[in-house]
């Protein structure tokens, strides 16, 4: 088919951050489907909880302290996370390197506390369905956390190599910040569901 040039794209930039970039939308897509998974798991918990009048099925209360500490750590980590986002937008390599290192650390510490959270549930996964759902919810979020911390550490290493001086990489940092917000956000309802909802009634 014959063609006639009608527009010139040569002046366009070769990268864009945030919602301008396809990666941001891809990240959003994965958040949507993972969020849906969490919502369904939480829905399954609530379904069982409303089905059985004696819910918690005579199990002892979980000790909320490790979970509460994880929650506080995650909320605190949002501050450096957003500072990092600002530096990524400025494409400033020095502060981004420091920020990524800090975020790798702040991602790993809740994982250590998480180790103590499982025994603090005071029930095993094979004791009854209440125990199963607690372990499933906590396990799902732990996998989520491990994956993102792993990703953050790899990206941190990458930012200390010569590959770092690329708009694409600063975009990756921005998306990493975005995803960490999501990891923190998904934890809040799960935390409430595991530790506080059963205490209501």
């Amino acid at each position: 088919m014959k063609q006639r040039p009608a527009a010139d794209l040569s002046g366009l930039p070769s990268f864009g951050l945030g919602p301008r970039s396809p990666t941001w939308w891809g990240t959003l897509g994965f958040m949507a489907l993972e969020g849906m998974g969490f919502a369904l798991a939480a829905g399954a918990y609530l379904y069982l909880a409303t089905l059985w009048p004696n819910w918690r099925l005579s199990a002892p209360e979980p000790n909320h302290w490790p979970g509460t500490i994880v929650t506080l750590l995650l909320i605190v980590s949002l501050v450096p996370n957003h500072l990092l986002n600002r530096y990524a937008k400025q494409c400033a390599i020095g502060p981004v390197r420091i920020g990524m290192a800090v975020m790798s650390l702040l991602g790993s510490v809740p994982l250590i506390v998480r180790w103590f959270e499982f025994p603090a549930l005071n029930i095993y996964w094979d004791t009854n369905a209440y125990g199963s759902m607690l372990w499933v919810l906590l396990g799902l979020h732990t996998i989520h956390l491990i994956t993102d911390v792993g990703d953050t550490i790899v990206l941190t290493v990458l930012m200390f190599t010569r590959h770092a001086y690329s708009g694409r990489r600063f975009g990756d940092v921005g998306d990493n910040v975005f995803y960490w917000d999501f990891v923190v956000l998904t934890w809040i309802p799960i935390y409430l569901l595991i530790y506080w909802v059963p205490r209501l009634g």
Binding site: L57, W125, A129, S132
Partner: peptide, 23 residues
Amino acid sequence: FLILDRLVGTHIFNPAEGGDALL
């Protein structure tokens, strides 16, 4: 959930231990 019930002994779909088959 099914594979957890089958493999590691969770009770999500087991009505005898507080789960539910209709779930």
